[in-house]
Amino acid sequence: MEETYEFTKEDLDEIEAIKAKFPEVMPATLPTLWVAQRRFGHVEPPVQRLVAETLGLPESHVHGVATFYTQYYKERKGKYVLDVCTTTSCQLCGGYKMLHYLEDKLGIKAGETTEDGLFSIQSVECLGACGYAPMMQITNDVYVNNLTEEKLDKVIDSLKDGKMPEFESVGMPLLENINNK
C-alpha cells in the first residue's frame, strides 16, 4: 500500500500565500515542493503527485522540477542530513577530511543513511560559505562553519539529543585590525 499524504490547513494557507506572490500558478512549484518536503521529510513520487494536484499542474512538470534541484529529497533520508561541502575552498581546507571523519564516525558512506534512520551524509557542492571552510549544512537548514573533528563530535552528540545547532553568525572582520597593524 502506498502511503497517502495530505497537506494540513496551515500548509494550504502557506501555499495560497505563495501563489499570491506570482501572476501564475507554475511559479509556486518550487516553494510548494519546499512546503511538502518540510512537512513530509521528502518528496517521493506520491508527494510530488500531491503537489501537482494541489497546484493543478501536470505531474510530469513537478517531477521534472523535483529531479532538477538537488535539495529536494527524491527518496527518504535520515532525520538529519549532513551536507558536507567538498568544493574548492572546502577541499583546500579539509572538507574531504571532515567528510571521511563523519563517514567513519557514523559507519556509513556519503549517500547512505544510518540504520537507525537518524543520519544521512552527503558530499555536496559549494554552499557559499567559502571563508568558513570546511563546513556543512544540516538538513537544508543551519550552516555549521569551521569544522574540526571536535566540533563534529559535539554537533553529532547534540543532534542525537534532538538539538539542532543554533544559527552561527559569522561577522565581518573589522578593518581597524588591519589599519592598526
Binding site: 501564475e24 500558478v25 512549484t29 518550487l30 516553494p31 519546499w34 521534472g64 522540477v65 534541484y69 529536494y72
Partner: peptide, 22 residues
C-alpha cells in the same frame, strides 16, 4: 523566493525559468 539547489540558476535567464517554477 528561493531556489532548491542548482548552480545554473545563478545564470540570469535560468534564474527566470526557476522563478517561473521550471
Amino acid at each position: 523566493t528561493g531556489g532548491a539547489g542548482a548552480y545554473i540558476c545563478g545564470e540570469e535567464t535560468s534564474m527566470l525559468e526557476s522563478l517561473e517554477g521550471k
